[in-house]
Design a binder for these strands. Structure first.
Length: 268
DNA sequence: CAACAGGGGACAC
DNA sequence: GTGTCCCCTGTT
């Protein structure tokens, strides 16, 4: 077990913010995360966070995953004090982090997310992981299924994916898995692109529209300027930013502000 | 039982 | 850019 003390870090907020569909609260202060083929349980009391994993995984995986090298008070302090709405949102979600999740996992997860609610998205992802992912045992002895690889999903049939409750999204997932396998799109190269270029590339995938592309950029490529606009954000923007969101001021971290707004709308 | 909405997107005009 | 269909599933 590893213990750290961390500011602007709240597992409950991160969990509820809904960026990770495989993060769950499993006890009063205890959470579980499955990311790629990795498993982690962790607890938090105030600023003290306990990671139940080998030190190696913490250093080479979870630090990056939870963006622990980044001081989020800098984002909070960037908020215009005269913007009462965003100030309140930042206070409510001050412990949120933009997780650095796996690109492939984000592409599939947000393909599934369209016209869908979080409970069902989670079920769908557990279903495809159970069907097509590798069964593993964590260092703490927990059994879980890794997120399925592109190769595994490319070999699936649309019917099998529909049985995982994906509905009409099954064909999107299948098409994308095959494109990745055949090299029609290089996931590695997306990491080297600008936000604009990566977004454009992602929009070429069947089933990926602007909102989904921005979610993938934000959570899978850590492009912090990506600003996904869903129905909730749309309503918030219409209500509080009738002359448009101050994009100039928050250039480079618009996605962080989006998360504060999204969480605030969810929780207030 | 029917209606409806849930973190959209494709496609045709 | 607007409208229409998609036709999924859980909830009301």
């Amino acid at each position: 077990m590893l213990t750290i003390e961390m500011d602007n870090f709240d597992l409950g907020q991160i969990c509820r913010s809904g960026q990770c569909f495989r993060m769950d609260q499993i006890g009063d202060d205890r959470y579980r995360v499955i990311a790629g083929d990795k498993y982690l349980e962790l607890t938090q009391e105030r600023g003290i966070v306990n990671f139940f994993c080998p030190e190696e995984d913490f250093i080479f995986f979870w630090i990056r995953y939870f963006d622990l090298d980044c001081d989020y008070s800098e984002y909070i302090n960037m908020i215009n004090p005269r913007d009462k709405y965003l100030t309140a949102a930042g206070e409510m979600g001050s412990g949120i982090r933009i997780l650095q999740q796996d690109l492939w996992e984000m592409i599939i997860s947000f393909l599934i997310s369209q016209q869908n609610n979080i409970t069902r998205i989670k079920k769908c992802i557990e279903n495809i992981s159970r069907e097509f992912g590798v069964r593993k045992t964590s260092s703490t002895g927990a059994e879980y299924y890794a997120f399925p690889t592109a190769e595994a999903l490319a070999l699936a049939t649309e019917e099998q994916l529909r049985e995982c409750n994906l509905g009409y999204r099954a064909k999107y997932v299948l098409d994308t898995a095959r494109k990745v396998c055949f090299g029609d799109i290089s996931l590695n190269s997306l990491h080297d692109m600008t936000y604009k270029a990566a977004r454009k590339e992602l929009l070429g995938l069947y089933g990926v529209g602007e909102k989904v592309a921005d979610c993938i950029c934000l959570f899978g490529l850590h492009q912090l300027d990506a600003f996904p606009v869903d129905t909730h954000i749309r309503q918030a923007l219409d209500a509080h930013y009738k002359r448009g969101f101050p994009n100039r001021r928050y250039k480079g971290c618009r996605g962080v502000m989006q998360q504060y707004i999204f969480y605030y709308e969810l929780m207030k």
